[in-house]
Design a protein around this nucleic acid. Structure first.
Lengths: 183, 183
DNA sequence: CTCTCGTGAGACAAAATTGTCTCACACGGG
DNA sequence: CCCGTGTGAGACAATTTTGTCTCACGAGAG
């Protein structure tokens, strides 16, 4: 029976998220396959990481597409995006810690495109008056990444319920922690 | 001339933040010392990480003390905390990615104490009516970590100005991205 | 059934990393 | 000046990780 490449990648991401210095053997075991088989599918550690990056990129693009960022209010679009990105949260939580990907001058162009699409959403919200303009789109984008990663970790560690994932992020990012009297 | 242990630790943190899998030789070079000297001060990689953890813990405790979380409104206390924690942000950005520290059952008790102090601040804010109660203190605490880490990265990468550090975090965490008409 | 394909297990060498040691040198105090 | 301390450079072995290979096994197709 052929291994499910996609499933292997997800298991590998989970293992590497827990322990970034995991041995290829540990990664293979976590995926339920042998090191030999892992090596048949991915030439080496680098190739594995690149495959994870590609998968993460693809899932982000998909989420961005599904969220239809251009439709409706920017706020609603952002809520949709957060909901759609949830399946990729675990993978993202790993990739954002894999700073190696962002160091080389050959940083995958895909990330720029994703960043741009997110920043564009925030910019649209700012122009429509929905979002405040004293927080830059770059910061809002980074903050979204950070909150998604934190939420993914909080869920993994059992500190918060998985069902609250998108609500927590969206409410905090949009409304903040401050309580409002009424509105 | 004796090496400045504190300075070595900061350089090491910077290097390891950029590349978590840095060789001890790379870490030593980044600190401007030789591998031999690095090894004289820290028995090995583990010992180095532990020392970084201890330094981070100590800086967090200091920030928590300086912020005087019990005084004034919870919101003001939170703003003070964010301001005081800025010097430790780089170190924190590394430590939060060093999941290894949080995996073993012997997770450093110091982090629990810090988490508790932060959660206590949020709880106080909730009880006083300043903070909303539909976002758990655990999530608010994790979100704070995430935003601090994201902000540290954004500054390191030059996407945002260092002087905006505490403003960006505090404004987003407390007020959110939504624009308010007036209040 | 037989054959093929993909896999698991393990051996093996190559490469990378680490831990330990020695030695020479520079600096600063006495 | 002389000496002690701490350092840099590098050699070296031990350990770990990786890349590559072989072989046997089992499931599934024909």
């Amino acid at each position: 029976m052929s291994v499910d490449r996609d499933q292997v990648l997800r298991s590998a991401a989970a293992q590497l998220t827990r322990k970034g210095s995991s041995t290829l053997d540990e990664v293979a075991r976590a995926s339920g396959i042998s090191r030999a088989t892992l090596h048949r599918h991915f030439a080496g550690r680098d190739a594995l990481i690149r495959a994870l990056e590609d998968l993460g990129l693809q899932e982000c693009e998909t989420a961005l597409d599904l969220a239809r960022l251009g439709e409706g209010s920017a706020q609603d679009a952002l809520r949709r995006l957060i909901k759609e990105i949830e399946p990729a949260a675990g993978l993202l939580a790993f990739l954002v810690t894999e700073n190696q990907l962002f160091e080389g001058e050959d940083r995958h162009e895909g990330w720029s495109r994703i960043d741009d699409r997110m920043a564009e959403l925030f910019r649209r919200g700012q122009e429509s008056g929905e979002f405040r303009i004293d927080l830059s789109t770059a910061w809002l984008t980074d903050a979204l990444y950070g909150l998604v990663g934190s939420a993914a970790w909080a869920v993994l560690d059992g500190r918060v319920a998985a069902k609250d994932f998108s609500y927590m992020i969206a409410e905090l990012l949009i409304g903040g922690a401050q309580r409002r009297v009424e509105s």
